[in-house]
Amino acid sequence: MRGFEPIAWIFQALTGIAMVFLITAHFLTTHANHEMLSYENAVSRLGSFEYKVFYFFLLLFVTFHAFNGLRAIILDTDGGMRRKKVVNAVISVIALVAFFYGAFLLSRF
């Protein structure tokens, strides 16, 4: 293995494949009927261990995938590549903030 890039690529693919299933499941659990979206149901879902695990992984995968994707877009430009280190650092920080904010919300139930 050679540095971060091959790992980023493989995880971009793996998280993508996993999300096809996770997001389909998420869509169906929230929109098959909208009883599911009532405050009581949402809170009881988020309180259950199984859903906590499910959402934790969805959150982990989606934040990595989305921000690594954004990183790829920015590094495709002259300006982005010239400041590669800064781009990597800033994107990582934003991704971590998004992840920990989501995890914080999850932890409240």
């Binding site: 934040t63 989305a66 921000f67 994707g69 954004l70 877009i73």
Partner: peptide
């Protein structure tokens, strides 16, 4: 991808 990223936020 960018639309979904914005939606995620």
């Amino acid at each position: 991808g960018v639309v979904l990223l914005l939606y995620l936020c």
